[in-house]
Amino acid sequence: MPAVTFDDVTKVYGEDTVALRDIDIEIGEGEFVILLGPSGAGKSTLLRVLNGLTQPTEGVVEINGEVPSGARKEVGMVFQEHYLVESMSAFQNALTGALARNGFFRSILTWQRTDDKRAALEALETVGLLEEAGQRAGSMSGGQKQRVGIARALVQQPSLLLADEPVASLDPKAARDVMGYMKQAAQERDLTAITSLHQVNIAREFGDRFLGIRDGEVVFDGDRDDLTMDVVDEIYYGEGADEGAVSTAGDVPPDPAERGGTADTPPAGSADPPATAEAAEAPDSPESVGGDGS
């Protein structure tokens, strides 16, 4: 049985904003899947449909053969901005992953079971932060915070780990660390993982399978060898991208500062496609992008 099944899933927001269009995919148990695609392509909606925060308009999503309804503890979620409670320690943040297993009063009085406390410490160990368990989340670096976010998801003891742009606001080194820990956690715990990413070089390094999403449709589904730069161009800029002025080789979007100054910008000349949300929102017409860049 596949871990995740999308059966003709369509999601329409409002009257006619189509976020997902006839998505029909299966993801096997233990696969490490990376979603690629420009901002607004539907990656986040796909993840939200999976963790039950959004319901599909048409079609059915199944996780381990069941249709999710509402947030589920079997699905762990890692957010782009880590979303930790900054005044609490790393340990306390990780422990919130066990809330669904505890009653309100037990949790509010911090009478969590020893098993849960152990699980929280083990999860912090998995992400290399056991020593920092008592440190206040607010005083941690971006990469450390994101690793605590992963630990929190692991404490849920999920079978499916989702991550929405988990390294978008990190520098390249921290981004690699975080992805490394996530991959390791998934392998150690036999988790199926689905992560959306913008950094294609990091994606290639860690992913087993890649789904290219554009305008709510899956336009690519393959492994590392299939993910050539032409394919990446096509995912980000659409069909015929290579005919226009846009070429990913050396064509780094205008100015890092204009794009919010995120540190994950690939160096000029690297073979990466746009690394940040704004950059990836390049207009459909290749000519206009080429004009911008020149």
Binding site: L53, A71, G76, L99, F104, R152
Partner: peptide
């Protein structure tokens, strides 16, 4: 809003 959404996503109850 972020931490609220994160806690919801763990499957926590409304009171939690």
């Amino acid at each position: 809003e972020g931490p609220i959404e994160a806690i919801q996503s763990t499957g926590a109850s409304r009171a939690q």
